[in-house]
């Protein structure tokens, strides 16, 4: 049995770890609330954007934007993978990467090549180790990501799509279902999947475009894609915080259990030592 002192230092060190995990849990909880607010704040923009695109897709435009057209042949696909910058958030990133790989394998079985754009350092590390073709990268976005940080990476992928280097674009992120559940998602960004066909007949009008339809649509489409990616990023931040909170709570609980077990061992050792001492004294007194 371990000596009393050894067990005591072990308990001390676990208590210190527990303090840290407890603090991290509380930090994650407060950050999660803020991240959720941010997630909610980004919704109206993308909802409005979707409405406008919806109108545009069915209004009688003389100009069909390439993002709305399906391409016959798919030779290469692009993935924008949104991950966290830091670890200690349970299986959040791993689950997402698994979902991405599943989708990637489906494509590579058909002989389609894949390009990656990574947002967040974890994805960059993972797909680099996978020897994936990373064409653009963004990281260290912090807890309050801004659209600015994403413009560059998204543009690289959109340019590749415009030039015909890739024929399809996906975005992968974690969807925030609730605090306990985060679902990995792999959604198609391009070509834009048209929304509800049956509404088509209702829209017999068209916009006045200023200066012209092409310019307006170009600007709009880029912003639409950016807003979708941005929403993915905000959701992923909320997921990260929730997952970290849960992971740290579990770690704190485990540390508590470990301390209880060790405390028992320590008490037993102490009791045994006292018993031994008493018996030594008694036998010593008897000998005199």
């Amino acid at each position: 049995m371990a000596s009393g002192k050894e067990v005591r230092t072990k308990i001390k060190s676990i208590q210190n770890t527990q303090k840290i995990t407890k603090a991290m849990e509380m930090v994650a909880a407060s950050k999660m609330r803020k991240a959720q607010d941010r997630m909610a704040a980004s919704r109206p923009y993308s909802d409005k954007m979707r409405q406008v695109i919806h109108h545009l897709a069915f209004a009688h435009t003389e100009y069909k934007h390439p993002y709305l057209l399906e391409r016959d042949e798919v030779k290469r696909v692009g993935y924008i993978i949104i991950s966290t910058d830091r670890g200690l958030c349970g299986g959040l990133n791993t689950n997402e990467f698994k979902a991405v790989l599943k989708s990637v394998i489906e494509w590579s079985d058909q002989g389609v090549e894949v390009d990656y754009c990574t947002i967040g350092t974890k994805a960059a590390g993972f797909f680099k180790r996978m020897k994936g073709d990373i064409v653009s990268q963004a990281g260290h976005l912090g807890d309050a990501p801004s659209v600015n940080d994403l413009i560059g990476s998204v543009k690289v992928m959109l340019d590749a799509y415009n030039e015909g280097k890739i024929d399809r674009l996906y975005v992968a992120y974690n969807e925030f279902v609730n605090t306990m559940t985060q679902e990995p998602r792999v959604n198609q960004l391009l070509p834009v999947i048209s929304i509800k066909e049956e509404d088509e007949l209702k829209h017999h009008w068209d916009y006045i475009y200023e200066p012209d339809a092409k310019d307006v649509l170009d600007g709009l489409m880029v912003r639409y894609i950016e807003s979708l990616v941005y929403q993915g990023v905000t959701e992923n931040v909320a997921c990260e915080m929730a997952a970290r909170m849960i992971a740290m709570k579990a770690a704190t609980d485990n540390a508590g259990e470990l301390i209880n077990d060790l405390q028992l061992v320590y008490n037993k050792a102490r009791q045994a030592a006292i018993t031994q001492e008493i018996s030594e004294i008694v036998s010593g007194a008897a000998a005199v």
Binding site: V52, V147, G152, K155
Partner: peptide, 27 residues
């Protein structure tokens, strides 16, 4: 639908280049 940043073609281009550079550098 308001932009959050000052958008200019050059600036977007710079951001794109930067993202590419980061990827190349990391590789």
């Amino acid at each position: 639908l308001s932009d959050t940043a000052v958008r200019a073609h050059d600036l977007d281009e710079a951001a794109a280049m930067e993202a590419q550079k980061r990827a190349e550098q990391a590789l």
